[in-house]
Simulated assay, not measured.
Amino acid sequence: MTKVEILSEEEWRAREAAHTDRMRAWTEPHRQRRSRGEKHPVLDFLFTYYSFPPTRLERWQPGPGVVLTGPGARRFLDRPGYRETAEGVTLDLSAFSDRLARNARYSLSLLEAIHSRRARVDCFGLHEWAMVYRTRPEQVRHAQVPLRLGHAGTDAVVESLNVRCSHFDAFRFFTPDARPLNQFTPTRERQRELDQPGCLHVGMDLYKHAYKLDPFVPSELLGDCFALAVEIRELDMRASPYDLSAYGYSPVPIEKAEGRAVYARAQASFARRARPLRERLITLCRTLLTENHHSSC
Rank of each mutant, 00 (worst) to 15 (best):
E84T: 00
L149T: 10
K256R: 13
L213T: 04
A178C: 08
F45I: 05
G198K: 01
K208G: 12
Y211L: 07
R22T: 13
T48P: 04
Y207D: 13
Y133N: 06
E193T: 06
E5N: 14
E138W: 13
P29K: 03
Y106N: 07
L68N: 07
Q196G: 04
T185G: 04
R99G: 00
R59N: 13
D98G: 03
G248Y: 11
N103T: 03
L77N: 03
K39C: 02
R15F: 01
S245F: 00
L43G: 00
R260N: 10
G37T: 05
S269A: 15
R34P: 00
V132F: 09
Q32H: 11
M204S: 11
S51C: 08
H115S: 15
V262N: 06
L235Y: 10
T185C: 03
E258P: 05
A261H: 13
P253T: 05
R22V: 05
P251Q: 07
A246W: 09
V262E: 14
N292I: 00
F270M: 06
E58P: 04
R120M: 08
C285V: 06
H209Y: 13
T154Q: 12
R192H: 02
T85Y: 06
E58L: 02
R83M: 02
E5F: 13
Q183Y: 12
I6V: 14
L235G: 07
C165V: 15
R164C: 09
A261P: 09
R15N: 02
Q267W: 10
L244S: 08
P41W: 05
D21T: 14
T90S: 00
